[in-house]
Simulated scan of single mutants.
Amino acid sequence: MIRADYLEDDFDRRLVDSVLLLALWHFASSEKSDAGGRLRLMKLAYLLFRRLQCDSVCALSVNFYRWQYGPMSNEVYEAWERLEAADLMDEEEVWTLTDSGVRLAENFYEEVLKEESNAAVKAAVDEVAQEWRTAWSAQPLMQHIYSLSSRIAEVGPSIEDMALGDDFEPPPAPADAEMCLNVDDSWVESLSVALSSESMASLRSSVADYRGGRIHLAR
């Protein structure tokens, strides 16, 4: 069993959750880096969450509950806010990844998910992204999800038949999982900078000041 004890820190987990979702949405995006609307992205996040649950992998520390359009997660909303504040995603008619977001997603995939210890997480991301990349509308995603059992390891009512507000099974705890996502400390430190809205706001302000002639770089 692979343990990543530093991810027991809630802030670190949220950072890793955000970049893992960013990687999923990137590889499930169109060639223009259009990831789709909120409904599509939320359902992709749930399918990754469910696949990891089925494999007893501790990698995505979010919780889902049944809402009007199927599985919903407050933590996914927080990830959107975090990624947008860090200028990694942008939402107009649909969500798109910025150039910085694409680079971060691809670097995380190459340097973290391709590690042998993270093979199960990479396989889950690949499976969900490849299966649903051409499903631009959220409708086929929702139809598929509604047909699934609300329980992972046993027969239960379909997700469509769940009552509004009912919680889905939580992700496996690190102590109970077959394996956990292994992320190097240096990556966590990098994410704390890349996903810090304060750092990004300061950087954007400095760039704007420089371009506007309000500050000059020393030669």
Results as ranks from 00 to 15, higher is better:
L20Y: 04
E81Q: 09
D87T: 12
V19R: 05
F49P: 00
L97Y: 05
D87A: 15
K43E: 07
E84Q: 14
L41A: 07
T96H: 09
D90P: 00
S73D: 09
R38E: 09
K32G: 09
R40K: 06
S30H: 05
L104A: 11
E91W: 07
L41Y: 02
D55I: 02
V94C: 05
V76R: 04
E75D: 14
R38H: 04
A35W: 00
L60Y: 04
N63S: 12
A59R: 03
P71S: 10
S61M: 07
F27A: 10
R40C: 06
L24V: 14
S56G: 01
A45P: 00
V102Y: 03
L48P: 08
W25E: 05
L88T: 12
K32Q: 13
R82N: 09
S29M: 06
S30W: 01
E84C: 11
N63W: 00
G37M: 08
E31S: 14
S56C: 03
Y65V: 14
E91K: 13
W67P: 01
A45V: 06
N74G: 12
A23T: 15
L41E: 02
M72D: 09
D87K: 11
W67Y: 15
E75T: 08
R66A: 08
L104E: 09
R103C: 10
E78Q: 15
E92I: 03
A45Y: 00
Q53D: 12
F64G: 04
C58Y: 11
E92Y: 05
Y65M: 11
L24T: 10
E92H: 07
Q53F: 05
F27G: 13
R50W: 12
E93W: 05
E75I: 04
E78A: 15
Y77D: 12
W25D: 01
R103G: 08
R82G: 05
A45F: 00
V19G: 10
T96A: 11
D55E: 15
L20C: 08
E75P: 02
E84K: 13
Y65P: 00
V62I: 13
E84V: 12
D55R: 14
L47N: 01
M72F: 13
S29L: 05
S30Y: 01
R82F: 01
Y69N: 11
R38V: 08
S29I: 05
Q68H: 10
L97I: 09
T98R: 08
A85Y: 02
K43Q: 14
A86W: 06
G36E: 05
G101Y: 00
L47G: 01
L41C: 12
M72W: 11
L48T: 03
C58M: 12
A86L: 10
C54A: 15
R82K: 13
L44G: 03
L52H: 01
S61W: 06
M89K: 03
L20Q: 07
V62F: 02
G37L: 07
A59V: 10
L97V: 11
G101S: 10
A85N: 12
W67T: 04
M89Y: 01
H26S: 14
G36Q: 04
E84I: 10
V19I: 14
F64I: 06
V94Y: 04
F27M: 15
L48H: 06
D87R: 14
A79I: 04
C58L: 07
S73G: 10
S29Q: 06
A79P: 00
D87M: 08
D87L: 07
R82A: 07
L44Y: 02
C58N: 15
F27E: 15
S56T: 03
M72Q: 07
S61T: 08
G101E: 04
N63F: 00
L88G: 13
A79R: 01
L24G: 02
